[in-house]
Simulated assay, not measured.
Amino acid sequence: MNWQYKADEARLYLDAYIQGAMQKAQDPLLGSLPVEDYAVVEFSEPPCMRLVPQNAQVGEEVTVVVPGILCSKTLPPVYGPLRSTRPEHVRYLRQYVRCTGLGSATFSGFQSQLNDIYEKFANAPGVNTIKNFDFGLYEGEYCISMHTRHLTDRRYVSGERHIPFPPEIDPNHVLEEARDTQFIRIEDNVVQYSKRIEAPDGTFYFEPLPPAEFKEGDIVEATGAFVAYPGGEQGEYKLVFCLRALTMICSQYREDSKKKVTVHREEEPRKRSKVPSPSKIKRRYIPYGPPTITSSENSKT
């Protein structure tokens, strides 16, 4: 955030929003998820373990909503050119967001449930070791990160059909070119970008929003799912908080801070010291020839 961003006001707004969202959210908020009602189940395409409802007839993954203040992002559109089109680099192209509460105790409390979810995966059958989340800090405050790769190795999902990229994601067909025949885009790679609209009667609905509209300082809802991908050794896994959707809740604090910075720059132009400007400049020349002997020096000889 820039120095004009009203962090205290944004934090209070976020706290109030979280309290209200606990009653209205379509998906459970992180922090209110009944972890004991879910199970860790193994899937084959792609190979992974996911959190799903207990005794579910259909393998529908569990998603949770994390309201927060966007503090870092790597989002579409992808204009290119890519730094590299080698498969080992294309594989890791991703959509990434990082949210913070800027000191909100409610937001920091989400960490407790993330620990419970990690324990759920760590105790699942067939898991020997599993790498936990590592979100780091933003300005000394707790953060939560989510990401989703743009592409999946075709060899892991041989029965799936490629989902074309929309213009707001890949306007110049950079990702389509980079994937070649080795990668495809499946449902796991799709992230929904939207804006929450509140109706006069208190209800709300969602409208599509291009991902380019999201900026640091916006208050958002990030929806994520918990997936553990196998590592190099038998029984080794890495737990990932996968991004499934990003919703704009409020951009006002970010927009106001930008306006204030612009006004401040206009009101206080750079001061320049006044340099004297004489009407004529005396130039200094390099003298040529040997020094001239003055009359006083001649009288001494």
Rank of each mutant, 00 (worst) to 15 (best):
Glu187Gly: 07
Asp188Phe: 11
Asp188Met: 09
Asn189Phe: 11
Val191Glu: 07
Val191Met: 01
Tyr193Val: 06
Tyr193Ile: 02
Arg196Val: 02
Ile197Thr: 08
Ile197Phe: 06
Glu198Met: 06
Ala199Trp: 00
Gly202Tyr: 07
Thr203Pro: 00
Phe204Thr: 02
Phe204Tyr: 14
Phe204Gly: 06
Phe206Ile: 04
Phe206Lys: 00
Pro208Lys: 01
Pro210Asp: 14
Pro211Ser: 14
Glu213Thr: 03
Phe214Thr: 09
Phe214Arg: 04
Lys215Ser: 06
Gly217Leu: 08
Gly217Asp: 04
Asp218Gly: 06
Ile219Ser: 05
Val220Thr: 11
Thr223Tyr: 03
Gly224Trp: 00
Gly224Ser: 15
Ala225Glu: 07
Ala225Pro: 03
Ala228Leu: 06
Ala228Asp: 01
Ala228Ile: 03
Ala228Thr: 01
Tyr229Val: 14
Pro230His: 02
Gly231His: 10
Gly231Asn: 02
Gly231Lys: 07
Gln234Asp: 11
Glu236Lys: 04
Lys238Val: 13
Val240Lys: 11
Val240Tyr: 11
Phe241Lys: 03
Leu243Asn: 05
Arg244Lys: 15
Arg244His: 12
Ala245Tyr: 03
Ala245Leu: 02
Ala245Gly: 12
Thr247Arg: 10
Ile249Ser: 01
Ser251Met: 08
Gln252Thr: 15
Gln252Trp: 04
Tyr253Trp: 10
Arg254Phe: 02
Asp256Val: 03
Val261Trp: 00
Arg270Lys: 11
Lys271Val: 12
Ser273Arg: 12
Lys274Gln: 15
Val275Ile: 15
Ser277Ala: 12
Ser279Ala: 13
Tyr285Trp: 07
Tyr285Ile: 09
Gly289Ala: 14
Gly289Tyr: 09
Pro290Asp: 11
Thr292Gln: 15
Thr292Arg: 15
Ser295Phe: 01
Ser296His: 08
Ser296Glu: 13
